[in-house]
Design a protein around this nucleic acid. Structure first.
Lengths: 248, 248
DNA sequence: CGTCCTATTGAAATTCTTCAACACTCGTGG
DNA sequence: CCACGAGTGTTGAAGAATTTCAATAGGACG
């Protein structure tokens, strides 16, 4: 079995400096690229920073750049004509951001937290794909993963109670967020990357209902809340149980 | 095995008989294949029929076969532990059915109507993909399309009223179903491929609410209903307006 | 003709939202 | 240093939408 030896196959000196510490090279799409291709791609990349709440790509507009997320959380959302909003996806490092093949996005892309990305012009990827079938495969795999997540969330949106929805959201973040976990006997702690209004838009609820359900979970001892953003979960399995078992 | 040159007696223009009338050759994944590959694939295919309400692939179980849908409607659904159900996707001909790369499905696959498929063993596709990058591309495109549809539906599930949900469902079917449309000046008519309980599970509602909202739409003159299944829409644009504008 | 399945309708109960008031935090500027 | 205001989050009470429970109707089929 290969352990950490994949670094031996590829000499670090062959990997562009900007890519050396990048997660996208391992779990992201760049893992499909050879050092030469990485070098070629890196000539076109720019690291960019978006501050929390800033818009990365508005809906319907031509997307000029695609990117890998280096840090932070990105939210994808949709709006009804009269302004109701639904968040339809969250992306974390080292996810690929930007839709391949399609020039314009069907969703609004916004930074939920401060976000750092490694951006490159749309089209760069498409031409790389012609030489590297594995790259399309990586993108396909990420799309399949996003589809799974979307469908999981449809179950939550359509069939769970407010209490279960909030628990599901916390469980999602607990298992996805870059862990500031203190894994002492199952107790973990993390920062919610969204404010209450985003949580509400993610769950199809109002901010008041979200707040009330958080309070309820706090009183039940399932979570502790510090600074409105930091959540401590003494027993992750208990939280997981709340995601499907309404005990209001 | 699935190489192009193994069958020297095949002319490029020779499409296998079983494939000649098949939509999958145009809009589906088979469009990526050469006549030789089609012939090779067709040796492994079996046409299969599922009757309405029968299970095609249970959740979590190994999927032995993949298929193209030839006719009918397939529903993909998920369940909570206590039995609440959510339909997370509908598939129509000539969609590809079955998840590439993953051996077991995360969703339950059932026939909503009688369904005819062109099935082949899991793995056939994967080996074809090695020679044909365009095939993975086709699959990727379908996955992207399903992801778009899932996200559209998340907006419906999370942010629309019962009345808007039912209108959205009817609009979806009206625009997706194999049309028995009579396109006389915008008036169309079609059969709903789902029974009320399926509609409810698709919309995150109860069957009673679905029934009430259908009655409301009927009284408002937006639709006419025959036999509980056949819907007549005098003005499709009017129906579309109902999908985002609550006029309960 | 009775039974099963599906769909509709009504009334009561519940969940969630809406409206409204209040609390907390964090900069800024007097 | 404190006051102020904006942004964010919480809590309460009333209201609305949807669900639940219950009864009924219609068709298909043996």
């Amino acid at each position: 079995m290969l352990k950490n030896n994949d670094r031996k196959d590829v000499h670090n000196s062959d990997v562009p400096v900007v890519c050396r510490a990048c997660e996208a090279r391992h779990r992201g799409i760049c893992g499909a690229l050879s050092p030469e291709q990485l070098l070629e791609l890196s000539k076109h990349t720019t690291k960019m920073v978006y501050s929390a709440e800033s818009e990365i790509a508005p809906v319907g507009q031509e997307v000029a750049r695609q990117a890998n997320i280096l840090s932070g959380v990105v939210k994808l959302s949709k709006l009804t004509a009269d302004g109701r909003q639904q968040i339809v996806g969250l992306q974390f490092a080292p996810d690929f951001m930007g839709r391949p093949y399609s020039r314009n996005s069907e969703v609004t892309v916004e930074a939920a937290t401060d976000v750092k990305v490694c951006a490159f012009p749309a089209g760069t990827l498409e031409s790389l794909m012609r030489d590297t079938p594995g790259l399309e495969h990586r993108l396909h795999e990420q799309t399949l993963k996003e589809l799974d997540e979307a469908r999981d969330w449809m179950l939550t949106l359509g069939r769970k109670t407010a209490s279960e929805k909030v628990a599901s959201f916390l469980y999602l973040i607990a298992t996805h967020a870059d862990p500031e976990l203190d894994t002492a006997e199952g107790a973990i702690s993390f920062d919610i990357p969204l404010k209450r209004s985003d949580i509400a838009d993610f769950l199809g609820l109002t901010i008041e209902t979200v707040s009330r359900q958080l309070t309820k979970l706090r009183h039940a001892g399932v979570i502790n809340i510090h600074n409105n953003r930091t959540i401590e979960v003494p027993d992750l399995d208990r939280l997981r149980q709340m995601t499907e078992q309404d005990t209001a």
